[in-house]
Simulated scan of single mutants.
Amino acid sequence: MAIKVLVVDDSSFFRRRVSEIINSESRLEVMDVAVNGKEAVEKAKKLKPDVITMDIEMPVMDGITAVKQIMAVCPTPILMFSSLTHDGAKATLDALDAGALDFLPKKFEDIARNRDDAVTLLQQRVIQIASKRTMMRRAPVVARPSSTSALSPSPTVGNRTARPSTAPTKAAARFKATGKKYQLTAIGTSTGGPVALQKILTKLPANYPHPILLIQHMPATFTSAFASRLNSLCKVEVKEAQDGDILRPGVAYLAPGGKQMMVDGRPGSARLRVIDGGERMNYKPCVDVTFGSAAKIYSEKVLSMVLTGMGADGREGARMLKSAGATIWAQDEESCVVYGMPQAVAKAGISTEDLPLDRIAERMLVEVGIG
């Protein structure tokens, strides 16, 4: 049976364009359209689509408000369309906080190098997030904290509680450190990553003993806003990485969108190199690039994780880290928005542990000796 999609946008041209792309994939079908957020909420309750594509700026009711209301009454996987501006970045992060699972640029030329690739990517994203609809509809709805900031540090995905993990509870089974010594932490992620990174980083203390490298697939205009928002929520310092940054303990460096972030120098006085993304690179930033450079400089003293995301970026970099003796963990399937990148690492036999998102920070603190 085809995946049923509700397309929401106030532009008739964009509604038609998105509908044509979705309907050209045999596994997808546009069941209806809505012209504003209010109509989207009404049709979501009545039609119960498998996926909703949602614009942010609309009359009557904007997309962020619509996402909040839909998640409160009929949780549904939502893909946002966003403008690649600073304000667009902030609004998109607000939409993810409200419960949307993913986003794409509204201008198709910003999605991929050619139209065919952009069409395929949009179709894939809809299919991928549709896989979470069963879990979301089983999950109870929880109220948002009154003092929340966007990407609120609650144990929920957006404003819904994830299905309870099958992993033992903390009271039943505490983690044990392996005894390895580390000098660097590195985390790679893509689809679902903004919420996942926020959940982990907000649990880390200001005295976290190592520098942290964050590689999140994200447009260039988004990473500055994302780093700023994380910094306002976290005890560790979070900043968008700049060329020449000296790596310092307790600081998380977010790879800039459209660029590649690499480690240079030697442990104890290493610096970041931030260079052009490269025309031939599929991902800018690329997890493989950063992980590979970390393996060369820090070898076995890297604690690394591959989180939720589409594709296999991170697998080859993680392979290099493992060959150097480093530790690689993967997020488990149940807690991922898209179990692509972690699956690639797990299937290749590279990761040593598969962890639920809500316990990764706890496991990190135990492993580095402060948990």
Rank of each mutant, 00 (worst) to 15 (best):
M1Y: 12
S11F: 02
S11C: 00
R16A: 07
S19D: 06
S24L: 08
V33K: 02
K38L: 09
V41M: 11
E42Q: 15
D50W: 06
D50A: 12
D50Y: 01
T53R: 05
E57G: 02
M61Q: 04
I64P: 06
I64F: 13
D97S: 15
L101F: 11
L101V: 13
D102E: 15
D102C: 01
K107Y: 11
D117I: 11
A118E: 06
L121S: 10
L122W: 08
Q124H: 10
I127A: 00
A139M: 12
V142R: 12
A143P: 11
A150K: 13
S154N: 15
R160K: 02
R163E: 15
P164R: 15
K170Q: 14
K180T: 03
L201V: 06
K203S: 12
A206L: 08
P211V: 03
I215K: 02
P219D: 00
T223L: 05
A225Y: 08
N231Q: 10
S232I: 03
D245I: 00
L247G: 06
Q260D: 12
R266W: 10
R266E: 15
P267T: 06
L272P: 14
L272F: 02
V274I: 12
C286E: 14
A295V: 08
K296R: 11
S304A: 08
G314F: 09
A318L: 02
S323Q: 15
A326H: 08
A330P: 04
V338R: 03
K347H: 14
I360P: 11
V366D: 07
V366F: 03
E367Q: 15
